[in-house]
Nucleic acid binder design. Sequence first.
DNA 1: TGGAATTTGTTCGTATGTATC
DNA 2: CGATACATACGAACAAATTCC
Lengths: 228, 228
Amino acid sequence: MSLFEKIAQDLSNKIIKGDYSSGSVLPNEGELQKTYGASRTTIRKAIDILVTNKQVTRRKGVGLFVAPEISTQNILEMTGIMKPDSLSQGKQIFKEHYLRKAGNYYSQILNIKTDELIYYINFIQFNSASITKETLILPLKNFPELSLSSLKILTVLEMMNLGKEKVVDLEQELQLIVADKENAKQLNVRENDPIFKIVNRALNAKGLPIALELRYENALQTKYVVDF
Amino acid sequence: MSLFEKIAQDLSNKIIKGDYSSGSVLPNEGELQKTYGASRTTIRKAIDILVTNKQVTRRKGVGLFVAPEISTQNILEMTGIMKPDSLSQGKQIFKEHYLRKAGNYYSQILNIKTDELIYYINFIQFNSASITKETLILPLKNFPELSLSSLKILTVLEMMNLGKEKVVDLEQELQLIVADKENAKQLNVRENDPIFKIVNRALNAKGLPIALELRYENALQTKYVVDF
DNA sequence: TGGAATTTGTTCGTATGTATC
DNA sequence: CGATACATACGAACAAATTCC
């Protein structure tokens, strides 16, 4: 185990034990350097792990904070979006996925037009004994809000972490739009290509937005992000 | 966008375009330093991102390689529920789950008979810093829809494919509620403790639910969740 | 077989930029 | 405005794994 991992481990243990929970503050990076006798780079790599694991949040210009107990658990499983696997260990799921037009075949099956967009998801499960391939076809128009309630969780939590104003409600919108010139440049797509626009609005007690999150994502080629 | 992000983006694009796929090799870090005129630290941070995104694999003493085309990307990221992290430490989630009889222990906790069936789900999460184990116990009688017509995406698709009833919409809700007596017993919390209620509804063309999934989870102690 | 060369992995130090208070 | 603290970036050194001759 390398040094930065040991430090991450130690910090993690201390957080779990509650050593730092008073005031929800962690020593700053400089202090941690002294404490562990390590360089800033190493300290930051250690903290990176904790941030990834949602144990710690960083606020630029402010400091390090013990995060609320957000799970790094797969929220898909939590919300039941993902199907429970029938068998257990060491299995991995690979996938590919993309938007495409329905075409003749799926348009007949799904009773939609041939040029309507469908979300095409491929699962490949590697078991010790066999390989299973599953394909999921979802017409976009039928699943306009599929993952929104899940999205709420992380977004709300992130804002709550900031702790400035109280978020009492959350609105979310998700649209499939076509790229204008500006979007095309930013997302490296052509004009009129389909892109996703995601708007998250956090509202205070008076119903006024106190935070706004906009996301635009290439709907055709992006490999890592999919919202529908 | 910072330099290491730009480099990561550029490399990602080139990989997608296929510029490097010949021989499945990427230029080594030294070459990349020259190419981008950046320091090794920055180059490595860029590659960190691609490694996280499973586009690139590293082999010590050997070099950098374009990863296989099918990504092992976390499904959370795939669905856009979770943003891709810029750094990550190879965590993995394994789980097992099965139906079993309650037995003495759980029958007492859940106030059911010893031979009643429960759905037993085990999560084990390997982080670089820690190991987390989570268990979810669901008496079948309290979750009658869980294993069959639940709302998991794939199940929806199966329903579509089977052509029994057409699912044209999907609703998901997530609420934070307080536990009543029954919930308190089932989830082993105290009355009025916060718990999450997750409702998944599959709707037919008339807007009527044809499948329903309910889940209740301890909001304080399960790692999923946070005290709002 | 064995050692040199190559390449990634880890750690250090330092400097500058940027957000917050 | 100045002090504080995180964000980014540069350069350097050594360790560890692999490859090659």
